[in-house]
Nucleic acid binder design. Structure first.
Lengths: 161, 161
DNA sequence: TAGGCTAATGCGAGCTGGATGCGATTGCGT
DNA sequence: ACGCAATCGCATCCAGCTCGCATTAGCCTA
């Protein structure tokens, strides 16, 4: 699957280059480049949404069935230490992983589970306020708040799925 | 809630009345009043801080050793359905439970784990902004954000990744 | 005060998400 | 091509919580 077809928002070409760039960072840090790592990074770059470790694992195993989920966890951990990705706990379920350069917060609907992404600037005023009043440095990378999305809020009574 | 004791933070007297009031609400909903339930409610009212289910369980078992932790979970669930308490996931660890009338958000330090409580009004501007821009109804009860507290931020230099 | 209905409990098994120890494998500098 | 150690695959463990089921005990009625 090394096609270079033009098209989507984050096309395979850009993805390909980004994968190499990230793997290069891994190598610079003394790390080694393995199939598992390449696939994990690819999965992170290709998916339009944030993914859980299990979803990433499934994507990786679709191409390399031998890759164990614990390896995925370790690689995600490694990538996080490198600063390439971040993970967020969206309330109850498993954590989701996303690229660090997508600087945004997460609005999680507690009724349907839908996640809205809000740009960093939406929280800049809050960040300033918290810094001033509590000396608290808000981490927008891990920003996730609960609430009710516009959909569930308007049609009050819509059962989740 | 009727404050029977003037001045005091939350004295034993007020706690006692509050316990009865909450148990009364349980009874009105068709529920029964058991030792386990009374102790769970007492624990929630008496503790100055938010508690995990395990901490509550420990408090309850100090007075009634037979109460199983699963019973504590079930009672906490029941109380949450009643709207008496809420639970929040503060990042990695277990969830913490607190009374619903303590309307505040939680600032969790990702380095030392310290939890700062910030009053609801600190987030009112954000709530308005999210409502206006995304139609998202922020739930301040479950509000918990990650960041670095003033202590960790000032004492040691965290290199920006 | 007794009796009966059934909510609630105690207990343990089980589940999910994730961490860890260890021998085998494999990237990669030389 | 070789050798070292970073990384992997696997099994196993752990925390936090949930569930099924037999038993206990609130609450209501008489």
């Amino acid at each position: 699957m090394a096609d270079t077809s033009p098209g989507a928002a984050r096309g395979p070409l850009a993805t390909d280059a980004a994968v190499e760039e990230i793997l290069g960072r891994l190598r610079l840090g003394g790390g080694r480049i393995t199939t598992a790592r390449r696939l994990v990074v690819e999965s992170l770059l290709e998916s339009p949404h944030h993914q859980t470790a299990e979803e990433i694992s499934a994507q990786v195993q679709a191409k390399a069935p031998d890759v164990h989920i614990s390896t995925v966890y370790r690689n995600l951990d490694e990538l996080e230490k490198l600063g390439v990705i971040s993970h967020v706990h969206l309330g109850h379920g498993p954590a989701v992983y996303h690229l660090s350069d997508e600087d945004h917060g997460h609005l999680v609907c507690s009724e349907c589970g839908w996640v809205t992404e809000a740009p960093r600037q939406a929280f800049s005023a809050l960040a300033r306020a918290l810094k001033g009043r509590f000396g608290f440095e808000l981490d927008t990378q891990h920003f996730a708040v609960q609430g009710v999305c516009s959909h569930c809020g308007s049609s009050a009574g819509r059962p989740p799925a």
